[in-house]
Amino acid sequence: MKMSMREAINLTLHEEMARDNRVVIMGEDVASGQGGVYGVTAGLTEKFGVARVIDTPITESAIVGAAGGAALTGLRPVAELMFIDFLGVCLDQLLNQIAKFRYMFGGQARTPLVIRTMIGAGEGTGPQHSQILYSMLAAIPGIKVVTPSNAADAKGLLAEAIRQDDPVVFCEHKALYLSECDVPEGDYVIPFGKARTVVEGTDITLCGLSRMAVLAEQAAAELAAEGISAEVIDPRTLSPLDEESILASVSKTGRLVVVDESNPLCSMASEISGMVAEFGFDYLDAPVQRVTAPHTPVPATPCLEKDYVPSVADIVRAAKKALAY
């Protein structure tokens, strides 16, 4: 059935709450009003009641920390951190508490927690509501990081995130909420650590993360018009990362462009480039190209923001550079 990513996430929340009464939703504005900034949790309160769809004050440390404590003791919370930028006011609970429960307690603990959060620029939301930050989270042992790029993946990955027993940060790119695709009906679960080959190709691999997988697909279409066969890979989860699929693609094409909306330093683009340099050196016919945002905050002004976010033209240019090497 065709639906938007926002609708697919909403549907999955309905299905998982109906499936398991330990699943609770908590966060700012999730229950009352319109169901969050973009209506992603709309309708859940009517169906499941305020005992399981919990509006909280604006209190990110308490939202994330309490969700962690609830997960540790028998609930399966899906907490909403409205924008990933708000990690700045609650990181301790994720970094020092939740991520470490299982390890530092010697395997006694299970923390079946999902933190849904909005990421990304392109909507004019400025320096404190537009960041990516998933690279920082992927660097933390003990949590998993998921970045769906379309409605179908969002459904399958969210179902898996809710059903498995580790803490997951589920990163929803706000510029993808309205993008539509066919979504499988009924029980649909995508295991973590399995990349999706978006487009098959032979000349160059474009590895795009989150919304950048969509742009990479568009770039592949432009390249195809010029007779270049680009393969597009969407890792879908950043931790765990499907290194095998990326390496297999590079072994076939010999060239790699990583497209990541992160700031460049210590980004997933850097991680994937390093991984391929280490394990796929013999496959490479050209240096790995990283297409990222610049090392700046996200500007509010739309005229600069459009230059901040990697574009299809940037990807095409990087691909041609690799092909001309």
């Binding site: 309490a66 404590g69 997960a71 540790l72 003791t73 301790d92 609970q93 006694q108």
Partner: peptide, 30 residues
């Protein structure tokens, strides 16, 4: 920590525990 005893952990972050305890209280309530 000892999960079997409801002991959710000592904490080397000063002030780290209360949000976690609030979550455990939420479990008990829910």
């Amino acid at each position: 920590a000892d999960m079997t005893k409801g002991m959710l952990g000592a904490n080397a972050i000063v002030g780290g525990g209360p949000p976690i305890a609030a979550g455990a209280a939420l479990t008990a309530k829910t």
